[in-house]
Design a binder for these strands. Structure first.
Length: 589
RNA sequence: GGUCCCGUAGCUCAGCUGGAUAGAGCAUCUGCCUUCUAAGCAGACGGUCGCGCGUUCGAAUCGCGCCGGGAUCACCA
């Protein structure tokens, strides 16, 4: 909106004081002062050789006749406050009206894609609150990148193999009595999770017996019968035992069905699923190549390592002495595979910050292996979701299950909607859909409004708010506008000559005008919370306008038509902005 | 112990490429529905920005040192 103003100020600075300033930094004027934009003049005092006030006054005086967009100025100490004339505000509105998707850059299918990996669950237990933060972040970041015009590949890598999977398989075989999701009515992931827990109980009781017989806790764990059985099962799996593989396939299919149901509810989807059962062999040949290049070295016992001490890190194992791969091995292989499979120029891993070190090492290794794309890798490292009591612990049963949480959000939405009498005239299906929209909106906004990098606290005792700085607040603002638009129908025309803008109207336009740059910045920073904060500010600003000005009963039909258009722009920005957060914008609530 | 992250109102969070009297929401209290949805609006109350030193015209923001919390340093993933 203030394009050109910086240049005008730079010119003025040069003219008055001979200052060669390339980037003049204007900031929004604080609410308690008169004006729209503020220039801080302290940096120019040396050159001006005048007091702060005199310097600001001189700049303002020189600027006023030159800059058309500036209608007035005032000086408070070292701050030059500039008031914008209506012209740039009108122009901003005019630009919005030209583009239905204003704020979102049109997708260009011809540029290389960005890959975003997120979710990446284990198949031995259902998704929980931590996965929800991960999924919401991953999805939102994908949408943000798309909003810069770039295609996005959303992928997950499913940890479907290993000792932990065998644990639930073993327990099901021993204690399951042939239970299936169909026979129990349980969601597949929950059923499998139940047997994972069941295994842990079995192990505990066996360990207790062994400890009673005099074994140490550690030895007892190793020699417990069930543990040996599970290890055998893993070996059978790796050697391709058909019976084990069949059970593995069956139970995993239950889990996937369950995961997909939860993904559906969350509104996330993936372009491709990677499975560790397929990728864990990748990387071994890359290790060989790296050995030949001298990037890695082999120790006497046959294990392969990389020495990162010169980079301030440690020595890191990349291949076990028995030649089997570790997590790092397959991550190396999978990354290389992906860049050869797809036309893409960046890869973002949405993974919790407890793996910061792992990704630091991974990226460094790939760089050392000489892959030019290695510098385009990024780790969106997000903080834990903690309970007021601290970390979620499955052993203490404090894990907040994703499905349960979504259920609770929906029923809270239902309860509030009914109490407020908002659902009269809606069909059953419409009501259910509304509860889902509102409940999920509340949850998504609650999580995404927080800076991803910071850990956040979630209190399951207190239900997530629907008032104040919340998802439903944004949705409510949208629904109210939709109500106006419905009643307005087709409005007459209006033009800028018909009226002068009221202060509240200007505030709305000025706020709205920031939308495109907010989206671009949020995408660049991989930070959905910037969008959330903006949407809140927008809704708040609009509600301030709504409170004092009537749209449909405006002073003149032209003003009414203008306000309908303005309201429509706000609704559009809210809708598109919420979509970037994975939130739906209801038309009534 | 090494490395990294975090510490802002009673609670949950903004602000952090240095700028004016540190902002929201919740909670508590006060007003506002005969006019477009009160899940709203307006206001009150509430802060040694963990502590100290430094850099600067100016520090919540940058640097150093403490204190407190967390993560990570596995032939686990």
């Amino acid at each position: 909106m203030n394009t050109g103003l910086e240049a005008a100020i730079a010119a003025t600075l040069k003219e008055l004081f001979g200052i060669e300033e390339t980037h003049v930094d204007l900031q929004e004027t604080r609410k308690e002062f008169e004006g729209d934009l503020t220039l801080v003049v302290f940096p120019y005092l040396k050159a001006s050789r005048m007091s702060p006030e005199a310097t600001a006054e001189a700049i303002g005086k020189a600027l006023l006749p030159q800059a058309e967009d500036v209608s007035a100025y005032n000086v408070v100490k070292g701050f030059l406050n500039l008031s914008l004339s209506d012209a740039p505000i009108r122009a901003a509105m005019d630009r919005m009206l030209l583009d239905e998707q204003w704020g979102i850059v049109k997708l260009n299918p011809d540029v290389p894609a960005a890959m975003v990996e997120y979710s990446s669950p284990n198949t031995n237990k259902p998704l929980h609150l931590g996965h929800i933060r991960n999924n919401l972040l991953g999805y939102s970041v994908a949408k943000l990148i798309e909003a810069t015009g770039k295609p996005v590949l959303q992928v997950q890598i499913i940890n479907d193999r290993g000792i932990h999977i065998c644990k639930s398989m073993y327990a099901w075989k021993m204690f399951g009595g042939g239970e299936t999701p169909a026979s129990t009515g349980m969601k597949g992931d929950h059923l499998v999770g139940k047997y994972y827990v069941r295994f842990d109980q079995q192990l505990k009781s066996e360990v207790a017996n062994l400890v009673a017989q005099g074994l140490s806790e550690e030895d007892a764990k190793k020699s417990a019968f069930c543990m040996k059985e599970v290890q055998q099962m893993l070996q059978d799996w790796e050697s391709g035992d058909t019976e084990v593989l069949e059970l593995w396939n069956t139970m995993n299919s239950w889990v996937y069905e369950g995961f997909n149901a939860t993904y559906d509810r969350l509104g996330v989807q993936f372009d491709k699923n990677y499975y560790e059962s397929q990728t864990y062999v990748l990387g071994k040949k890359d290790i060989e190549i790296g050995l030949a290049q001298g990037v890695f070295y082999r120790r006497e016992d046959g294990s392969v390592w990389i020495d990162l001490t010169e980079d301030g890190l440690d020595e890191k194992l990349v291949l076990r002495k028995d030649g089997t791969s570790v997590y790092m091995t397959q991550d190396i292989g999978t990354a290389i595979q992906r860049f050869s499979d797809y036309q893409m120029d960046s890869l973002t891993y949405v993974v919790g910050n407890e793996q910061d070190y792992h990704f630091k090492v991974l990226f460094l290794i790939l760089q050392k292996l000489g892959y030019t794309w290695a510098k385009t890798l990024s780790h969106l490292s997000y903080g834990m979701v903690d309970l007021p009591s601290g970390r979620m612990k499955s052993r203490e049963g404090t894990v907040v299950d994703a499905d349960d949480l979504l259920d609770e959000m929906e029923s809270t939405a239902q309860k509030l909607s009914e109490e407020l009498g908002k659902v009269e005239g809606l069909s059953e299906a419409e009501r259910a859909s509304l509860y889902r929209t509102l409940g999920h909106g509340a949850l998504k906004y609650f999580i995404l409004k927080v800076d991803p990098r910071k850990r956040m606290v979630f209190n399951p005792e207190e239900s997530i708010d629907f008032n104040g700085n919340t998802g439903p607040f944004l949705q409510y603002t949208h629904a109210r506008i939709c109500s106006i638009l419905r009643k307005a129908g087709v409005m007459g025309s209006w033009s800028w000559e018909d009226f002068t803008l009221a202060t509240k109207e200007k505030e709305v336009i000025k706020c709205l005008a920031k939308f495109p740059s907010i989206v671009q910045k949020a995408a660049a920073d991989q930070n959905p919370s910037d969008v959330a904060s903006f949407l809140y500010e927008l809704a708040k600003t609009y509600n301030g306008f709504y409170q004092v000005h009537s749209v449909l009963n405006a002073e003149t039909p032209q003003i009414a038509a203008f306000r309908v258009a303005l309201s429509g722009q706000v609704a559009g920005a809210l809708q598109r902005g919420m979509a970037l957060l994975g939130m739906a914008a209801p038309e009534r609530m």
